[in-house]
Design a protein around this nucleic acid. Structure first.
Lengths: 343, 343
DNA sequence: GCACGGGCGGAGAGCGCTCTCCACCTCGTG
DNA sequence: CACGAGGTGGAGAGCGCTCTCCGCCCGTGC
């Protein structure tokens, strides 16, 4: 009995068979209370910990899921992909929400990135070799081929956001259109009449929805044309976008940015142009991220309950893992407007 | 031959033994080229993927490491710990740096949090049951008991930052004192004469080192007394700290904050008091995080090569895993001053 | 021409666990 | 008092892989 103790060792100490120890550990079937006690004793004295690999081998479960951040197909210039991912606090909140749900269930997420074809293969391979029971997938770009690959491989997975092309896979999303409407309502209610928008990249579905939802809502208010520029969700693109917007439409009095980081950038540009926020120009962001309260004036923004959404993803994934016939499901969360000072 | 193909299946298709297929896959010993070819063929046609659990069972390696974020001993009020962790972009960069090193080696990090005694036990148990080969440990508080627990359990691990109490465990750290000196040099060179500091929490070693390093350097410049307030690395604490500092020492003309988030908060407070940065008051932050460029004026800050440091942690960890007798090592990185507009 | 060595494939023993039988024992019942 | 039902523990067969032996065969040297 050297090295790590095994079931065998515990069984010997307790004077029972391996099977009985296994039963006690897994709480399966009745085992007489006194024997249970003896076994617990033996486990304690030997310091036994079940070997995960051995257990996985027979149960076909690992007790871990992949948390995959997936990019487009192309290569990423400049900074490595991993660093980019974390630049936006977005991913951190999703990870946190997922962990909050998974951890009490003894499941741990394995961090993976899939920005290139090679990396995608690695992810699929990882899943197929049974290193994780399923995947939580966050795509940063619309045309991500990974969801399809996963479906083809028949692996359990849940997406963050509706896939660009219809794919039979469960997902959790926000009603982006409803969020954009909230922003439009607020801007109009404040009396803004010349409203513009800084959208996210067009190849991201959420960007499209936020943009069109905003445009439609404004159209209903009698503003059929809304000037807009395309950003890429970064601080800098928001700043640059706002400069462009001001150059072309100096009389703007309201801006809806597709995320807080860009709204924050817009604030900077506005200040540079001497516009007071919210008096001259009202600004609304999206996400209610930490950036929203880190700038002055603090941002009025559309709140996305990311942690809850991520938790729901985890819940759905476990359901899929548990029951392979679990119906493909989508859950859409409602947004909420958080009013602060910028609008 | 249904379900997932196994080694056996491949062997049958290729007309060789299991052992030979295993050799081809793992590249061990010479296998005649033509047989190698046949085996590769068979692997392709069967779509074989080695089962990780089975392999782990015999190799005693999992190909994954735990990435543990560890808190103090107490409970965490308000937001759940997971969310807090990601509020600061710090952790994201560390994770990114580690992944950049591990991924090419086919190793994936498992995300874990250890903020309570129960969670710590879970981490230790997870490691002991062989679910991960080792741990990369980032402590957010000084008196974290986890390093000691890990050492006692004889598990391979590498820390971010020197442990509060001497522990025989490898770690990677920054020369915080050198970084603080850089800040002092800059402030003095700009002509600041009434300098103050917003430090991090005193129970974090890095905070102490930055503070004492700064004080010592300023003392050498003939400023034996440096007013200071204690923050907790958040934006808000920086803002509040700056207000306090200005109330007590209205003539301050230079501030060294122990991280960028607090420096950013200080900027806000200074603006509110009508002080121009850097002309009235120069501000220097620490970390060179994304926050440094997201504010105006952009922050002059002490750069900590986090990604490289995290990569080094991963390198050391793999060395420890590879060779259990690998000597306990510490690697100290030098900081660099990044000059922007705030000082 | 024969012994010997080296290269190379196969057989088989586990790694530590779960889970399906199966056997036993104790009740309760006719 | 015999018998069946139901509850409990044990035996043993794998899960899919790696790795140590072993043995075969061919080439080389004396």
């Amino acid at each position: 009995m050297q090295g790590t103790p095994t079931l065998e060792d515990v069984a010997r100490v307790a004077g029972v068979s391996r099977a009985t120890v296994s039963r006690v550990i897994n709480g399966i079937r009745n085992v007489a209370p006194d024997i249970q006690e003896t076994v617990q004793q033996a486990i304690a004295t030997t310091g036994y910990v079940p070997n995960r690999a051995a257990r996985s081998l027979v149960t076909r479960r690992t007790g871990s899921v992949a948390l995959v951040v997936s990019g487009a197909g192309g290569d990423v210039g400049g900074e490595p992909f991993e660093s980019q991912v974390f630049a936006d606090p977005f991913f951190g909140r999703v990870a946190g929400g997922a962990v909050a749900f998974l951890r009490p269930r003894g499941i741990h997420p394995v961090l993976m990135f899939a920005e290139t074809a090679h990396a995608r293969d690695q992810v699929i391979g990882y899943l197929r070799q049974g290193s994780a029971d399923g995947a939580l997938l966050v795509s940063t770009h619309g045309e991500d081929p990974l969801p399809r690959l996963i479906v083809e491989a028949g692996l359990p997975a849940v997406l963050w956001a509706r896939p660009a092309r219809p794919t039979p896979i469960s997902y959790v999303d926000l009603s982006h259109r409803a969020g954009a409407e909230l922003a439009a309502d607020r801007l109009v209610a404040r009396g803004c009449r010349r409203v513009a928008t800084i959208s996210g990249p067009f190849d991201v579905r959420a960007s499209q929805d936020r943009l069109s939802g905003f445009q439609d809502a404004m159209a209903r208010y009698g503003h059929p044309y809304i000037p807009g520029v395309e950003g890429n969700f970064t601080h800098d693109s928001g700043e640059a976008g706002m400069h462009r917007l001001l150059a072309e439409h100096p009389d703007i009095d309201g801006v809806f940015a597709a995320n807080d980081l860009m709204a924050q950038g817009a604030l900077l540009a506005l200040r540079e142009h001497g516009r007071a926020v919210p008096d001259d120009v009202a600004v609304i962001g999206f996400d209610d991220s930490s950036a929203a309260t880190a700038c002055r004036p603090q941002l009025t923004t559309v709140r996305q309950p990311m942690e809850d959404m991520a938790g729901e993803m985890a819940r759905l994934l476990l359901a899929h893992i548990e029951d392979p016939d679990f119906q493909v499901t989508s859950v859409i969360f409602p947004p909420a407007l958080v009013v602060r000072q910028s609008a």
